[in-house]
Design a binder for these strands. Structure first.
Ligand SMILES: [Zn+2]
Ligand SMILES: [Zn+2]
Ligand SMILES: [Zn+2]
Ligand SMILES: [Zn+2]
Lengths: 145, 145
DNA sequence: CCGTGAAGTGAGAACCGCTCTCAGTTGGAG
DNA sequence: CTCCAACTGAGAGCGGTTCTCACTTCACGG
């Protein structure tokens, strides 16, 4: 919890320069506690457990703001729902997601412009990597995240 | 049109080994004529123009079957809708999509396993590349695809 | 300290891409 | 030709996400 608070008070605020409300604080703190990937809905479930009354729409809005500010990253999707994770790393990179336990690990971007068609000006790219992490391979049953 | 027919009668049938109905033939032929990326709905629009009465669900089912058979590839998304394109190339690769005209070009996969976290067993990955193709950069107004 | 206005919130409706259901049709094996 | 599993069209349904609107709350200036 102190760890979460530390991260929240660090230079890059979760919401950039926007206004901070008590709901947003609770949502950002809960996000920091989720280790591994989460959906907006699963984050909402957990936020509500400790702060009843927070609406789903508010969580969606907070997640969008945090992703916008670079505090969260979209790391893939599961059953049609977007997966997010707290991303403290700088620079461009992607994320590997364990489909068993949800653990997220940063992955260096392997993109080389020379592989692109001649003259193509890339504006954006998305990479999602799914698999099973080392820990989950070791144990029969999945992890607990 | 003959070109489309040729491709359809080539070794790899659009639907694999499934049954071929008149609706599916029309859908596959229309898909072959779309050059560039398309959504299920835009394909449906175009199929209906020449073959009224074909339902949207049928197009969704046909697209799923063709993607399953490897005849179509999912190349990205636009406004929340999946983008597909005819993909005649063999082997693992990805696609660059022009956001202006929809042109799709195959891109070699630049993925190196060494970039992954140690012990992580990747089962799957998705890559979507967006940008502006050389042709569209040359002309002020966008292309016509 | 208050007053004020913009930003944020909660509830629920709305949206939209997609899938499912069901009764009717059709392709193709035999 | 017969027969049935695969396929089809229409529309209902689903689920994640966004929108609307009346209300609250934060941050700031006075
Ligand atoms: Zn990261
Ligand atoms: Zn990258
Ligand atoms: Zn291709
Ligand atoms: Zn690849």
């Amino acid at each position: 919890m102190t760890e979460a608070r530390d991260r929240l008070s660090s230079p890059a605020a979760p919401y950039g320069s926007r206004r901070m409300s008590s709901a947003r604080r609770a949502i950002a703190e809960t996000a920091a506690l989720m280790d591994g990937a989460f959906t907006a809905e699963s984050l909402h479930d957990r936020v509500v457990a400790s702060r009843p009354g927070i609406g789903l729409a508010t969580v969606y809005r907070a997640v969008a703001a945090m992703a916008d500010a670079g505090y969260l990253a979209r790391v893939g999707e599961r059953d049609g729902a977007a997966l997010y994770a707290v991303c403290g790393h700088d620079g461009h990179h992607h994320h590997a997601v364990c489909e068993r336990c949800g653990a997220v690990t940063p992955v260096e971007c392997a993109f080389v412009p020379s592989a692109l068609p001649a003259g193509f000006a890339m504006t954006r790219h998305e990479v999602a990597i799914y698999g099973v992490c080392a820990e989950c391979q070791g144990s029969e049953r999945g992890g607990s995240r």
